[in-house]
Computed example of a mutant assay.
Amino acid sequence: MSELKKFQVQTARPLPIIVLADTSGSMAVDGKIEALNKGLKDMIASFSSESRLRAEIQVSVITFGGSQAELNLPLTPAHQLQSFTPLVAEGITPLGGALSLASQMIEDSTRVYTPVVVLVSDGYPNDDWEVPFARLINGERSSKATRFAMAIGADADEQMLRDFANDPEAPLFRAENARDIHRFFRAVSMSVSARSQSATPNQSTPLLIPSADDQDWEF
């Protein structure tokens, strides 16, 4: 094995991005699920072209809709993702199950950079979510994760989402329409990309939301 190859193997560590996506029935109206799908697809596409010298961006999507939370996409290197299966909106909002899946994924991870966990929702949880929420916030490894949150529409549980987010620069993003959802995921993409290119990928980078009239932020 060449010295360069050895260096790359030793230094390129996973940078996990875990998206907790509300796919309850209310996401089917006003173009919300379509905007969420586009935001995720474009985010993954932007990650796939990033350099993997220091950090390899890996993406996971956990959905909470229907009757239970599901691991829609296991942690996978972004550059290996050729396509993204669109999410479908139906059923209730089992957030607790999604938080439990995310906690287990993070706690079971080894030799990874500090994860980024993104929570997007347009409603209130329908299951027992408080204990899994506390477990994620206070877990040995998950407590160190960077957490971003987006409230979609006027019916989202903003207090829960505000408690989830821990980015001092952007404690909670409110999306009023599909364009806002795109803006949020573009900001997440920029933040994660900056980390992956940094000399210190373990350190969080601010979530800088482009203004609504800034045309340069488009994917």
Rank of each mutant, 00 (worst) to 15 (best):
A194T: 11
S196F: 00
L99A: 07
D180A: 14
F184Y: 12
G65A: 03
H79G: 07
K6L: 09
D180H: 10
V9S: 05
D163Q: 11
D30F: 13
V88K: 12
F185W: 10
F219P: 12
A134R: 15
P94R: 02
I181V: 11
S26A: 12
N138I: 07
S198V: 07
Q159W: 07
P86S: 06
S142R: 08
A78L: 06
S143W: 13
L75W: 04
S204W: 06
V118I: 15
T205A: 08
S196Y: 00
E50Y: 11
F148K: 00
D216N: 15
Q159P: 00
A170H: 06
A78N: 08
A102Q: 03
D216P: 00
D30K: 12
T63I: 05
F47N: 03
S204I: 02
Q8T: 02
M105W: 03
F84P: 01
S143T: 14
T146S: 15
T146F: 07
L207K: 00
P74E: 05
V29I: 08
F185T: 04
S100E: 15
R186Y: 05
E218K: 08
P132V: 09
E107H: 13
E130S: 10
A170C: 14
S48N: 04
R174C: 09
A102K: 04
A154N: 15
A69E: 06
D155P: 01
R195G: 01
R135C: 00
L53C: 08
L36W: 06
R174Q: 11
F84E: 04
K41N: 11
I181K: 03
R135E: 15
S143N: 15
I152S: 02
L81G: 02
A187F: 07
N126Y: 01
L4C: 01
S51I: 06
A12E: 05
Y113M: 10
R183I: 08
G96A: 07
S51E: 14
L36G: 08
T23I: 10
V29Q: 14
M160H: 03
K6Y: 05
Q82E: 10
S83W: 09
D30G: 08
T205Y: 04
S51K: 08
L95F: 13
A212T: 14
M27P: 00
V192K: 03
G66N: 04
Q68M: 11
P168C: 09
M150V: 14
F148G: 00
E3I: 12
S46F: 02
S67R: 10
F7K: 03
W129E: 14
R54Y: 13
Y113E: 13
A12W: 00
A151F: 02
P201I: 08
S198N: 05
L95G: 02
E169W: 04
E3F: 05
L119S: 14
P77G: 08
P210T: 09
Y124M: 13
R195M: 11
A151R: 05
P16T: 07
Q10E: 12
P168W: 05
Y113I: 10
L20R: 06
A102W: 05
Q8N: 03
